[in-house]
Simulated assay, not measured.
Amino acid sequence: MHHFPRSYSASSDPAFALIVAILAELPRRERNELLAFLDFWRDLPREDRAVFAKSLRPDLSEEAVARLSGVCTRTLQRWERYQAVRPTLEDYRHARRRPAKRRASSNGAWIGLDDPAA
């Protein structure tokens, strides 16, 4: 377990003080779960962090994944495992886009906004 140096004071860093206050407000079980996850995350290699984040949340931007992993986006592009997990445009091709000038009616059907029945 890592400890902060004795010279480190929560009052010297408002962000740290806020995090400690939030953790103190959590129920003990949730606080322990969160701290266990943070310990797990800290021990993961950075490439594993990126693969884990992208596989769990494919909609995350490259910048967000890089920030979570502690690397730059260029590094993400070099990792083959990360590139294999990352969704491509082809993965989204099957999704149908809704027409822009339509809205859903009460029965779930799509109605044109210029339709007189709308």
Rank of each mutant, 00 (worst) to 15 (best):
E80M: 05
N107F: 07
S105D: 14
W79T: 06
A95K: 13
S9W: 07
A53N: 03
A21N: 10
L68A: 03
S106Y: 07
L18V: 10
Y92W: 13
L38P: 03
A104F: 13
R102Q: 15
V85Q: 06
R31V: 02
W41C: 04
R78Y: 01
L35T: 02
A24E: 11
A15V: 15
L60V: 03
A117Y: 07
V65Q: 00
L34P: 05
A95R: 15
L60E: 03
R103Y: 09
A100F: 07
F37K: 07
R74H: 02
R97V: 14
A118C: 15
L68S: 01
L44S: 05
E25M: 10
A24I: 06
A104S: 09
V71F: 00
A17M: 08
F52M: 04
D13C: 14
S55P: 03
R46D: 01
S106D: 09
A53P: 04
R57F: 12
R49F: 00
S7A: 10
E33Q: 14
F40Q: 06
R93A: 15
E25I: 07
L38S: 08
V71K: 00
R46T: 00
K101F: 14
P58L: 05
I19M: 10
R31M: 12
S61M: 05
H94M: 08
Q83M: 13
A21D: 14
T73N: 00
K54H: 04
L113Q: 10
I19R: 08
D39I: 05
L34F: 14
R93K: 14
G108F: 11
P14M: 11
R97D: 08
I111F: 04
D48L: 03
E33N: 13
A118P: 07
W79L: 04
E63A: 05
R74D: 00
R29D: 08
T75W: 00
R81V: 05
E90S: 14
V51F: 02
L26E: 12
Y8A: 12
L76A: 01
L23T: 03
A17W: 03
